[in-house]
Design a protein around this nucleic acid. Structure first.
Length: 130
RNA sequence: GAACUAAGUUGGAUGGUCGCGCACUAUCAUGCCGAAAGGUAUUAGUGUGAGGAAAGUCCGUGCUUCAUAGGGCAGGAUAACUGAUAACGUCAGCCGAGGGUGACCUUAGGGAAAGUGCAACAGAAAAUUACCGCCUUUUUAGGUAAGGAUGAAAACGUGAGGUAAGAGCUCACGAUAUUCUAUGGUAACAUAGAGUAGGUGUAAACCCUAUCCGAAGCAACACCGUAUAAGAGAAUUUUUAUUUGCCCGAUAAAGCCUUGCUAUUCUCUUGGGUGGCACGCAAUUUUGCGGAGCCUUGUGGUGACACAGGGCAAAGAUAGAUGACCAUCUUCAACAGAACACGGCUUACAGACUUAGUUCGUCU
RNA sequence: GGUGACGUAGCCAAGUGGUAAGGCCCCGGUCUGCAACACCGUUAUCCAUCGGUUCAAAUCCGAUCGUCACCU
């Protein structure tokens, strides 16, 4: 399942102010109901709800190489989580990397992401796919 | 063996399971649009997919737009000589100067006698010199630059002659600058001989001389589309929350509040797509032509490089593609991510390797 | 991606080659029964960093690092 990226700045600020939030060691996760979910679903040929995902990695964490790697790790973690659980669709999901994220392994990041998504409520426990 | 010098190469590999960008192919595999041809998305297969610095943006080009009869001023850049190059502030060779025992390294290296300025403090004086001193003369006046003190810098150095006292004033030796001649070299220049000079420093102060420079940059620019439009924020009012769609906290229910949708008003922004852009053009499906492209062979040159032959051309994203996990390799490898392209420079960089050479020590 | 500006004490800052003005803060002293105010004194030697030109560099030149702004 591919993700559509969030491109507008106001959507990010909305997610920060109004969305649900959970902080863990290596990342901060924000989630907000997507008001345009229906329109996106119609545009999508598969007619399914889609989570729009935004990844935020600040310049403080390192150069371009480090930041690209963090983004890849976050995407991989999200992919693994979606594979294992039934994640609610139709949300804006913003993941912000914190300092120290570049040293973690992807499995640790995946566990933290899993935890925070359960806390927010996107994953209903007991619905494991596998 | 130790300590160095110069040049260059490499910049993790292999296997397994998932996953990403682009190109091509596929079809009676699937969805949507379409009358159809077909288009698009998914799927499957094949191929391919980040550096030596991709970085800094410090120079030079191509390319694009604007400006431009021609010329000049202003402004900027460069600066020994000869060459290389599309061009350069780059590179090669060579000369001078400086450093090192040496291999070798460093060097923005024109002009101060065209002119202007500046040289703090100290010192008599920082440029047509004169305080003390020495000497002549009479008190006035004058000669002088040996010696003193200051300073970053004080009017070639040492010795002799000379003189009233002195002084390149003269001589010998030495240093510097410059002119001529001879020899070598394309030249800068070097060596030798002869002559001349003593006019401090600063041009990365203004300036002079010679050469070069139109400006802006792919967020350039072109096309499509688009202003009764699209997006965002704030406020207000009314209605509905039921059957397609969306949303629904609390309550027995209604009412009420919150949130969203719809409508109106005000404020702000000008968005979006395609090309440029990944060798190009023409025929056309493998040929031709072109190009500062890459690899390789040969020839010429001390070298930068040039010429000729053969082969290959395979990143092209647009919130931005190379990753994650496991195993093995003595090692969970440094600096680090293309964004129109190329030639340099500068800066960052773990480990490994190769070639040539120097000095010292030991042995033969 | 491109273009430009700046960096001086803890903070704000002046500084046209000749040993860095000023204000706030801190510290010490005077004043006061004790404070505040006032007055006096005190803090730069590494002017972001490195190299060069010069007798001499915060200043001139080159490179590097950091911060900020603009083009959208």
């Amino acid at each position: 399942m591919k993700h559509i990226a969030i491109t507008e700045n106001h959507l990010y600020s909305k997610a920060y102010t109004k969305g649900k939030k959970h902080v863990s060691k290596s990342l901060v996760a924000y989630a907000l109901k997507d008001y345009h979910a229906k329109r996106l679903m119609l545009a999508n040929p598969r007619h399914e709800y889609i989570n729009r995902v935004g990844l935020t990695v600040s310049k403080k964490l390192g150069g371009a190489v480090v930041r690209n790697r963090i983004k890849r790790v976050l995407r991989e973690a999200l992919r693994q989580v979606e594979k294992e659980y039934q994640v609610e669709k139709g949300y804006l999901l913003v993941l912000v990397a914190r300092a120290g994220c570049e040293k973690r392994k992807s499995t640790e990041v995946k566990k933290e992401l899993e935890k925070s998504l359960i806390q927010i409520g996107l994953i209903k426990t007991g619905q494991a796919n596998t």
